[in-house]
Amino acid sequence: MVSIFLRSLLFNILFYPNFVFWLLVALPTLLMPRRAVLRVANWWAQSNIVLMRIICNIRVEYRGVEKIPKGPLIIAAKHQSMWETISLLQFFDQPFFVLKRELLRIPLFGQYLVKANMVAIDRSSGARALKKVMRRAAEEVKHGRQFLIFPEGTRRPPGAPPQYKAGVALIYVDCGVPCLPVALNSGLFWPRRTFLRYPGTLVMEFLDPLPPGLPRDEFMTRIETVIEDATNRLVDAGQAEQAKLFGRVPATVKP
């Protein structure tokens, strides 16, 4: 565990200078089309994956990439870690997601979010915020973009009971486009609320898209079932790998 501590410490020491480096590299994109800033974001994501592999011995595997539809889309992803917020964007040509309005105040980073035309909301507005998200999501999707949403609304540790919100179904019905479910086991290797990073094989799996036009209740049942079943399978495999490496599953990645 000493080695994991030192490797995690080194990764975090390098993570933030790396972030600042790409913020500076991206400066010219403020005068360029939106795709330019998204391209630099993808380079940043790839650089983090390299650091994860070299320093923390975390290998990343993507499955089902061939299932990603072209054109307007909703992407409903399991959310266990900060990692997927960085890494998912690279698979889509015009992605956008919902973020806290406060993030727009971060120097440079906030300006890039505006340039990428992300949807910022005031969470204290409650139902009004959800209505705004639905309206903006429908507008952007109808212009051919891909909307990335985490149906549980926040990060959940591996093995925690699912807490899917109705908002994803409302947006799905309103947009009238396919929905791509995404399962993963990132919380085993990049857990929330700790700086520790654990070695192993981090897997993100794109599942079969759900067609547009499903009734809301049927959609909610299917999206939760397919994501949770696949996520549980990936988590079980990841924990088996960790048990071989450590003789047990690290306590910090349990719910």
Score class of each variant (00 low, 15 high):
53 R>D: 08
250 P>F: 05
11 F>G: 08
96 F>R: 01
49 I>S: 09
48 N>I: 05
185 N>V: 11
159 G>C: 08
112 Y>R: 12
57 N>L: 00
249 V>C: 08
113 L>C: 15
187 G>W: 11
179 C>N: 01
213 G>S: 07
167 G>L: 12
22 W>M: 10
210 L>E: 09
75 I>G: 04
82 M>K: 05
175 C>W: 01
129 A>I: 12
148 L>S: 04
5 F>K: 14
106 I>T: 10
115 K>Q: 14
76 A>G: 13
196 L>D: 08
62 Y>L: 12
141 V>R: 04
210 L>K: 05
160 A>Q: 14
71 G>E: 02
115 K>M: 00
138 A>L: 01
40 V>N: 07
25 V>N: 02
99 L>C: 11
20 V>Y: 05
237 A>R: 15
67 K>T: 03
84 E>Y: 02
201 T>K: 09
5 F>S: 12
8 S>D: 10
63 R>M: 01
165 K>F: 09
143 H>V: 00
164 Y>W: 14
30 L>E: 05
189 F>K: 02
151 P>R: 07
138 A>R: 12
10 L>F: 13
232 N>K: 15
178 P>S: 11
237 A>I: 12
144 G>I: 02
85 T>M: 05
83 W>L: 05
208 D>V: 12
57 N>A: 09
136 R>Y: 04
162 P>A: 14
232 N>C: 04
28 P>M: 03
187 G>V: 10
20 V>I: 15
248 R>P: 01
189 F>L: 04
82 M>A: 15
148 L>E: 02
158 P>N: 06
212 P>K: 12
197 R>P: 00
172 Y>S: 02
71 G>R: 06
103 L>M: 13
83 W>M: 05
38 L>Y: 08
118 M>Y: 15
25 V>D: 07
175 C>H: 02
193 R>Y: 10
2 V>Q: 14
235 V>E: 09
59 R>F: 00
214 L>Q: 11
9 L>D: 05
173 V>I: 08
122 D>Q: 14
240 A>T: 11
99 L>I: 14
30 L>Q: 04
115 K>Y: 04
81 S>M: 10
5 F>P: 11
195 F>G: 01
164 Y>S: 06
18 N>P: 09
152 E>P: 06
8 S>C: 08
214 L>D: 03
53 R>N: 09
19 F>K: 04
26 A>N: 13
143 H>K: 15
128 R>Y: 06
202 L>E: 01
55 I>Y: 06
77 A>P: 13
185 N>S: 13
210 L>S: 07
29 T>I: 04
205 E>L: 01
78 K>S: 03
247 G>W: 04
234 L>S: 10
